[in-house]
């Protein structure tokens, strides 16, 4: 495999993209707090998603030439890559469906019970984890197993933090504020149901991503990945970024758009 970029410029690119994403997230937050602008939020989310898909998930690799020998590792990786993207496309329909449910059931309202600071915090944690995932993958693409393992470990810890934060901090707090699973009235819609379903499905994907990370980390420890052969690493990384990608849309959908409605 030929590397179009040397290692430091690849890592540098990761930093730049991270800065863009962070700035956009902050922008998004302040836009939402100061005035209602759903279309603007949508535009910001789409830009973020495009950045993640292109630079972190390197969707362009789908187009890469990979020879004609069907038994070569490169060719198989090409097939795997296509398979993974098709899977993500399929999975995207689940999240799309959840968004449709949210829009249909809650319309232009959102639960007031959610803690905005916490929401921004978990979003930031997930974003930073994506940054480290990108560093890790870049390192592996240049054959640096050690650095890969360190970065993946950080990603894992952040991801675990996100997961536990949602389940053990965000959920109990929301429930305490009145957003229980069965809360909802004809006026508010089933807010609790929608909130827990969306965050729950997302958290489930985070959990599978964590398992995936643990597996590749362990395999890297055994030294089975090289700069040329590390499809497992690439797959785990792309999947991890996908989970982040989903949150790029879920975060504004749950926390930012619409008028906050109290349940208690």
């Amino acid at each position: 495999m030929s590397h179009s970029q040397d290692k430091s410029s690849a890592l540098g690119q990761g930093v730049v993209i991270f800065v863009y994403l962070a700035v956009l997230t902050v922008l998004e937050f302040f836009v939402a707090v100061s005035f209602e602008a759903v279309p603007l939020l949508l535009v910001v989310a789409v830009i973020k998603a495009a950045l993640v898909m292109y630079y972190y998930m390197h969707i362009y690799k789908l187009n890469q030439e990979d020879g004609t020998d069907e038994h070569s590792y490169e060719y198989k990786t090409g097939s795997n890559r296509l398979g993974l993207w098709l899977f993500l496309l399929s999975d995207a329909f689940v999240f799309g469906g959840l968004m449709v449910m949210r829009v249909n059931l809650l319309g232009n309202t959102r639960p007031e019970a959610l803690n905005q600071v916490l929401g921004l915090l978990v979003t930031a944690v997930l974003l930073v984890s994506s940054f480290f995932m990108n560093r890790g993958e870049t390192a592996m693409a240049h054959g640096d197993t050690k650095s890969f393992m360190n970065n993946t470990l950080i990603t894992f810890v952040l991801g675990l933090g996100f997961f536990l934060g949602v389940i053990f901090v965000e959920w109990p707090e929301a429930a305490h504020e009145g957003l229980t699973v069965f809360s909802g009235t004809p006026a508010t819609g089933p807010m609790g149901g929608v909130f827990y379903f969306m965050t729950g499905m997302h958290a489930f994907h985070v959990l599978t991503g964590l398992i995936f990370l643990a597996v590749v980390w362990n395999n890297a420890r055994k030294g089975i990945y090289t700069a040329e052969k590390h499809w497992g690493v690439e797959a785990a990384a792309v999947y991890w970024h996908f989970v982040d990608l989903v949150w790029i849309f879920f975060y504004p959908a749950l926390y930012l758009i619409g008028t906050a409605v109290a349940l208690k």
Binding site: M101, N104, V181, G189, P190, M191, G193, V194
Partner: peptide, 17 residues
């Protein structure tokens, strides 16, 4: 299982969805 009222009109759900 959990009582999320997606399609339960009493909780603001929408059977047509």
């Amino acid at each position: 299982l959990f009582g999320m009222g997606f399609y339960d009109a009493a909780k603001g759900g929408n059977p047509v969805l």
